[in-house]
Amino acid sequence: MPGFDLALLLHGQYHEWLVAGLLVSLKLAGVVLACALPLAIVIALLRLAPHRALRAIGATYVEVIRNVPLLAHLLFWYFGAPELLPDAVKEKLYAGNFEFIAAAIALTLYAAAFMAENIRSGIRAIPAVQFEAGRALGLSFLGAMRRVVLPQALRVTVPPLLSQAIIFWNDTSVATVIGVGEMMYQGARVETASFRSAEAFVFITAAYLAGSLSLTALGAWVQRRWPVRTF
């Protein structure tokens, strides 16, 4: 194996490819986080709703999404879904940056399912009497949730959500399968072009670790700063 060439990582074309990949990974992660969290809250509330039909919708969403691998989701949204659209729309999609959009959709739906469960657990960790007290004061279901339960649930939920965020930061890697130009894609590209994969993969490993460890540190800080206070 040829010697490890650090210079390769620091400048030149391969460096640019890898950095571009990192930026795409970050962008994808950011979009997913921004879109998945609100969706997750909606699903969690659906699963806790007083109406059985609403609960069923939430439960079905979670179970269907969770039990199918992310890769299959990506394949479906990129290869399968557009076929359901009229040809003209399909052409326009494939002409543009559809890989990224499909990946964003697949990842968002996927992340939301898991996050919804974390949020639901967090809400359920708050004793039911809190919610009842809120309703007894005259608040509606949503009102009681918003003003009484969710603020308390937030502290309990943040650590598992941050763990989940680490998982999804890592999951952006799977988007390479449909051609999104994130880090793994670029890494493979460097390997094909130069037959030197060690440097590229070290870069990628460091990038993912930096993200994960930062999130872990953030979680530790949050837990120290805003500890969960129970009775």
């Binding site: 890697s173 793994m184 493979a188 490993t205 993912y208 993200g211 994960s212 460890l213």
Partner: peptide, 14 residues
């Protein structure tokens, strides 16, 4: 911390 901090796909590639 190492293994949980990187994607499975990266382990596959390595």
């Amino acid at each position: 911390y190492l293994v949980r901090g990187i994607p499975l796909l990266l382990v596959v590639f390595w």
